[in-house]
């Protein structure tokens, strides 16, 4: 029985693809990607898809480990403190790397990390189908008059930033109701505990497709296509003032200092070819109502920068920043 078990395990653990791409770096043990959030969430899902692509390319197991806690800083810190050999990565929204210092949570900075982005998520305003609001215009009108309960994944979450963004340009009122994550917030709206949710489209896609949520507007400047539902109009159709940037890029990243050159070189090559052509990631994005935005290195940093600016100044406005964004060299957007 025991031998059987060991044999079985051996076949699984060592069942790595024989054919791997030709890269300067050939990892000889499993690579770990730390997801600093719980299993099953948005970061976790996209990271697992990414890990699959990496496994195929590198011919080595890529293990996804969940280390949640303290707004994702614990897991990222563990990646920071790991040996700089290319075997430990962190995943998540890189924009957070630019705001931890601001919030007094952790002394790290976006330029200490090398970024490899995969998808970008956008917030979506949806209501419970039994609510009277048929389009964003009606909802905005109602919200100008009374406090409507809005479900988000908590202070500082994408959903919170979204409703705050709308509030900042329209002056609406709302009652902020926070949940443990995007999914629970969406479910609370489906279940009718709250009337509105402004979480990420990716967290709402299934419910929108199933007719359990009515999407009113996407917080972007162009319409959003959700497979199996159709097109959701952009918020700019209803508000003509400029809104803060509310999209969130996701990806994996590694400390710049000390990480071997061949590791960086290898991942650059993967992000140059394999990732942009990955069917798994493309399908994932389309199903989830996310944008597929594979970029790396400085280009990725440039893409993330406006997100950091936007977040930093809204944290500042909300009184949550421990130091001024200007001190960190983050100019007002």
């Amino acid at each position: 029985m025991k031998n059987f078990l060991i044999a079985a395990l051996a076949t699984t653990v060592f069942a790595v693809p024989a054919v791997a791409g030709d890269y300067p770096w050939k990892p000889d043990k499993p690579i770990t990607i730390i997801v600093p959030w719980g299993a099953g969430g948005a970061t976790d899902q996209v990271t697992r898809v990414t890990a699959g692509v990496l496994e195929d390319e590198l011919g080595q197991n890529v293990v996804v480990v969940n280390q949640p806690g303290a707004s994702g800083s614990i897991g990222k810190k563990n990646a920071w403190e790991a040996p700089r050999d290319g075997y430990t990565w962190a995943a998540g929204a890189p924009k957070q790397l630019g705001t931890y210092k601001l919030l007094g949570q952790w002394d790290t900075w976006i330029d200490n990390w090398r970024l490899y982005n995969t998808v970008t998520n956008v917030p979506l305003v949806s209501v419970n189908p039994s609510s009277p609001y048929k389009d964003m215009g009606q909802l905005l009108k109602a919200m100008a008059e009374k406090e409507i309960a809005v479900a988000t994944a908590g202070a500082g979450s994408s959903g919170h930033a979204a409703i705050e963004g709308i509030k900042s340009v329209t002056g609406i009122k709302y009652k902020h109701v926070t949940y443990d994550g995007g999914n629970p917030a969406v479910i609370a709206t489906v279940g009718g505990e709250t009337e509105v949710t402004t979480q990420l489209a990716s967290e709402q896609a299934e419910m929108v497709r199933g007719g359990r949520l009515r999407p009113l507007a996407v917080l972007a400047s162009q319409p959003l296509e959700i497979e199996g539902y159709g097109t959701v109009p952009p918020i700019t159709d209803y508000i003509d003032k400029p809104l803060p940037i509310l999209s969130t890029a996701f990806g994996i990243f590694i400390p710049k200092e000390g990480t071997p050159e061949e590791v960086i070189e290898t991942f650059n090559m993967i992000w140059e070819k394999a990732i942009p052509n990955s069917k798994a990631l493309k399908d994932y994005a389309l199903q989830k109502g996310a944008l597929f935005t594979p970029v790396y290195g400085d280009e990725a940093r440039d893409k993330v920068w406006p997100e950091i600016q936007s977040d930093a100044w809204s944290f500042h406005a909300a009184g949550r920043a421990k130091i001024s964004p200007e001190e960190l060299g983050i100019p007002k957007p």
């Binding site: 202070a155 009652k175 902020h176 926070t178 909300a318 009184g319 949550r320």
Partner: peptide, 9 residues
């Protein structure tokens, strides 16, 4: 309260 959050939170 200075953040304008609901007092019950």
């Amino acid at each position: 309260t200075e953040l304008g959050v609901h007092p019950m939170t």
